[in-house]
């Protein structure tokens, strides 16, 4: 449980930490959309990806996010990388042009496959990293508040926004407690000779059962006591409540939002321009230089 360090909230006090979580979510969405826009000429796409990579690195530096942790968590993506590569290489798209190696008339390996899969992986990495910057600079509870704020309009159609947010925040609150409990029960069962890592199918099944049932029983008991405690302290989901935590918009948020909007706007402009002027290297058009092939 302790090896997942990247993406876990780290209590620092950087610029990114101080930005309003609602704002952070909005900017994240803007950046993600920007990353996902695809351009006709791959030199453009590649160049923009490079821009995003530099942006990400800057963001991580500002937020004091550990690079080593990022690499560690990306290491587990190797399976996905191979999977995508295989798919793209063995199922070529008819629009592919650059042949890498031709077996016969029906089948060839294209350079395009590598480019396409590489591009998808790059985008995935960018998106995962950005999300992790968000989660490591924002308290889970603040994220819940932000989600609740965004869902407020849904209250009009009687969507139980508040209840969902409360459930979510309690779930977040109890994750460490339940992890401790899991560790304790696993150890207790290990003392009774259970081996969670070895044994045949039936033994493993039994081992898991010996963990799950006590965990469930205790979780149910906890939830009963918790609901009693909440009721005793006057909680009523149907009644109005005041808020101790208030999300506030500051000058930082304006800067951050302007920054997010600028990137999004710029990319969108390029995107629209790119689709109007087909098959032309965008950068050659704009800057008068040929950075592609």
């Amino acid at each position: 449980m302790n090896n997942v360090t990247f993406g876990r909230y780290s209590p620092l006090n950087t610029f990114t930490h101080k930005v309003d979580p609602r704002n952070k979510i909005l900017i994240l969405i803007l950046l993600m959309v920007s990353i996902f826009l695809q351009f006709h000429v791959w030199s453009t796409t590649l160049l923009l990806s490079g821009v995003f990579l530099i942006l990400l690195i800057c963001l991580m530096l500002i937020s004091k996010v550990n690079f080593l942790d990022l690499f560690k968590s990306l290491k587990s993506m190797w399976f996905l990388v191979i999977f995508l590569l295989v798919i793209y290489v063995f199922i070529p798209n008819p629009t592919y042009k650059f042949v890498c190696y031709r077996f016969n008339d029906h089948y060839a390996i294209y350079w395009d496959s590598f480019y396409q899969s590489g591009y998808i992986i790059l985008r995935l990495i960018l998106m995962i990293s950005l999300t992790m910057v968000l989660t490591s600079t924002t308290k889970p509870m603040d994220l819940t508040y932000a989600f609740e704020w965004y869902m407020t309009p849904l209250k009009v159609i009687r969507f139980p926004v508040h209840e969902i947010a409360m459930t979510l925040s309690i779930a977040l609150r109890f994750i460490p407690t339940l992890l401790d409990e899991t560790d304790r029960i696993m150890k207790a069962q290990a003392s009774r000779g259970v081996d969670f890592n070895r044994g045949g199918l039936f033994k493993r099944f039994k081992a898991v059962i010996s963990l799950i049932i006590p965990l469930f029983v205790s979780a149910i008991q906890r939830s009963e006591e918790l609901s009693d405690a909440m009721e005793a302290r006057g909680y009523n989901p149907r009644e109005k409540r005041t808020r101790y935590r208030k999300l506030t918009f500051s000058w930082r948020d304006i800067i951050a939002l302007l920054f997010g909007l600028a990137i999004f706007g710029g990319i969108l402009y390029l995107f629209i321009y790119d689709h109007n002027v087909e098959e032309i290297d965008l950068f050659m058009q704009i800057f008068g230089i040929n950075v592609g092939f």
């Binding site: 150890k187 207790a188 009774r192 010996s210 049932i213 029983v217």
Partner: peptide, 15 residues
């Protein structure tokens, strides 16, 4: 098997 540990609140391990 030689050295056994009875945890605190062991009743929570019954299943």
């Amino acid at each position: 098997k030689h050295l056994s540990l009875v945890f605190q609140f062991p009743e929570y391990q019954l299943f």
